[in-house]
Design a protein around this nucleic acid. Structure first.
Length: 593
RNA sequence: GCCUCGGUAGCUCAACUGGAUAGAGCAUCAGUUUUCUAAACUGAGGGUCAUUGGUUCGAGUCCAAUCCGGGGUACCA
């Protein structure tokens, strides 16, 4: 039983003994005591006065007195208005630190046997990854680490949108203007190579459009349909669907280039997938599922032949699941892939990391599957995140290069190298070690910048200003770890056991232990809320508190041997949790920087 | 129009899900190196928590209305 449960349980017992009432543990509000007051944990007694029928102060006094008598580690208390601040004995906290220090798997929970399939990234194969994918990839990877730490068996999957009119545009442009060039021959990264042809297609379509006399709406998506280039592209899509050998061959070649390019970026970012899905293989699936739904009377066939699901009772609209001509829409195949994954993995949760533009889509998907009678559909969760915007508004892939993921990453790495050199931090490093450090710091800065924000909030990203290395940033936390590592190198022969002989703790030591003791709650909360920012903000406060401790008190030169042991043990544990916490964010920490 | 998500310091973000005097970083100003890594630490200034009303011991947090911004409301993906 952990601390909070113990305190709540004791409070419940006291209320039963004193007043003969059963209160629920929800009625007991327990917080960490605010810094300006003395105490470690605080019970808010206002919710309890309706049971005690006494004033808040009287209730708090009574509860404080009884808790002190009942729990041996409650050393004292004070009451301010309706707040009961409890102080614990130093030996309680020292034992707590001892217990955590000897538990190597502190903060990771035993395997629950529950399975999760987590889909993230979801790129199109006609263009390179952009900043939106960056947020997606960081969130997805981090979420998988957090779920693993919570005992889930996680399978990461990716889905490639590798078919349709967009990739055909790249293909048509390549046929016309490519001259059999390749990524190898041009030295361009594969996904950018293919993306360049997509851009070329748009340029050429615009040129052609200007020569046309036909009426224009001003909306390019609409107007482009009048061009011969578009007609040619549509024909190519038909050929593709018919399985035309030449078309398929080119399509495969282009995809190969793109995958190669993507893989380089995945490697650089250290993200991975256990299984890839391809839309080209799933886009025709799902019709049987829709038919089955019609038979079960959950879906309806309209007079025009289209199949719809009526979600007006659920506060949504009618949604088409199959076109009147019998062909699929987006959601048709999603129904199928969901069933497929369930068969394949038999999961308890299925998480989709997808931008919030698709909130509606995933509501419909989940409801449709539930109405089909799939109990497992209750485990579907859409991890929805908001867009990344530039200070002047939404990043558009057509305007400027700032939205491109690879450009962004290399810019961050460049800044990291520059700053690190300025500070002369790589003295004594080999060239490889230095390069590795730049990468660790640069990616740490970027990942942390993205993950510290709650997913449903949009991020304003200014390439020039957002990547910082001071204050509430990844490198600050990495630096704190490097400091701890330096201490540990010097104290490596010290036997830390026995620090619990100490009688007193100073305020900062106590604060650090309380924070360390909270770590496991944070790991739990991050999984429950599907929110890596919980971990990000926690690790920051841990690092911040440690830096204050480091600054205010000598560690290796502490005045007594026991104190030194305690401070080294505190350092070791802080370093450990920074490392573990950052790993949950997909960020590595250096031992020197 | 309807649905949905946002709006907190000049800027970027927190606020333990209804608790105490709303906290951090950046930027600005002023300090701290003979001692364990100054990418650090200390201090100062900076707030009508979009607005109005309500609920209660207590509201940035819940409810209602309004304003601003994003997204959705496709037989696009």
């Amino acid at each position: 039983m952990n601390l909070e449960q113990e305190l709540k349980q004791a409070t419940i017992e006291i209320f039963k003994e004193e007043f003969g009432v059963e209160i629920s543990s929800d009625a007991v509000t327990l917080n960490i005591t605010k810094k300006e007051h003395t105490g470690d944990y605080t019970v808010v007694v206002f919710p309890l006065i309706k049971f005690s029928k006494k004033s808040p102060e009287q209730t708090a006094e009574m509860l404080g007195e009884k808790l002190k008598a009942k729990i041996n580690y409650v050393a004292g208390y004070n009451v301010i208005k309706g707040f009961l601040n409890l102080s614990f004995t130093s030996s309680y906290w020292l034992n707590r630190l001892q217990e955590i220090s000897t538990n190597k798997s502190y903060g990771t929970f035993p395997a629950s046997g529950k399975k999760v399939v987590l889909e993230y990234c979801g790129p199109n194969t006609n263009k390179p990854l952009h900043i939106g994918h960056v947020r997606n990839m960081f969130l997805g990877f981090s979420m998988s680490e957090i779920l693993k730490a919570n005992g889930y068996d996680v399978t990461k999957v990716n889905i490639y949108n590798d078919r349709g009119i967009a990739i055909c545009k790249s293909m048509v442009a390549y046929i016309h203007y490519g001259n059999n060039s390749t990524p190898q021959s041009t030295g361009i990264k594969g996904d950018h190579f293919v993306g360049d042809w997509y851009v070329k297609w748009n340029e050429k379509a615009k040129e052609e459009l200007e020569t046309l006399n036909a009426a224009k709406t001003g909306d390019f998506d609409e107007d482009q349909k009048q061009t011969n280039l578009f007609k040619e592209t549509q024909e190519m899509l038909l050929k593709w669907e018919a399985g035309d050998a030449v078309t398929i061959k080119l399509w495969k070649q282009m995809n190969e280039w793109v995958f190669e390019g993507f893989q380089q970026t995945f490697n650089l970012l250290s993200i991975d997938f256990q299984k890839d899905y391809f839309e080209s293989q799933t886009y025709m699936l799902g019709k049987d599922i829709v038919e089955e739904g019609v038979k079960k009377n959950v879906f309806k066939k309209r007079a025009d032949g289209a199949v719809i699901i009526d979600l007006t009772p659920d506060g949504l609209d009618e949604k088409v699941l199959l076109r009147s001509d019998g062909t699929s829409v987006y959601i048709t195949q999603d129904l199928a892939t969901a069933e497929l994954r369930n068969k394949e993995f038999g999961m308890d949760k299925m998480i989709y990391v997808v931008a919030n533009e698709q909130d509606y889509h995933f509501k419909v998907l989940k409801l449709a599957l539930q109405k089909l009678g799939h109990a497992w559909a209750a485990g579907i969760y859409h991890l929805s995140y908001a867009l990344v915007e530039s200070p002047t508004g939404r990043f558009k892939s057509r305007e400027g290069k700032t939205a491109d993921a690879d450009d962004l990453i290399s810019e961050v790495l460049r800044i990291a190298e520059e700053k690190t050199r300025e500070l002369g931090k790589t003295e004594g490093f080999s060239e490889e070690q230095a390069a590795e450090l730049y990468q660790t710091i640069g990616l740490g800065a970027l990942k942390y910048f993205v993950l510290r924000v709650n997913p449903y909030k949009k991020i304003i990203f200014n390439p020039e200003e957002s990547i910082d290395f001071h204050g509430h940033t990844g490198p600050f936390i990495q630096y704190t770890h490097a400091r701890v590592s330096a201490i540990m190198r010097k104290a490596k022969d010290l036997d830390v056991s026995g620090f619990s002989n100490l009688q007193t703790l100073n305020d900062v030591e106590r604060e650090l232990i309380i924070l360390i003791s909270e770590y496991e709650n944070v790991v739990r909360a991050a999984a429950e809320k599907y929110d890596p920012s919980e971990v990000a903000n926690y690790v920051y406060s841990l690092a911040k508190t440690y830096n204050k401790f480091y600054h205010d008190f000598p560690i290796l030169n502490a005045s007594t041997e026991d104190e030194k042991k305690l401070r080294v043990a505190l350092s070791a544990q802080t370093g450990m949790l920074i490392k573990k916490g950052m790993k949950l964010l997909g960020i590595t920490v250096p031992d020197k920087m």
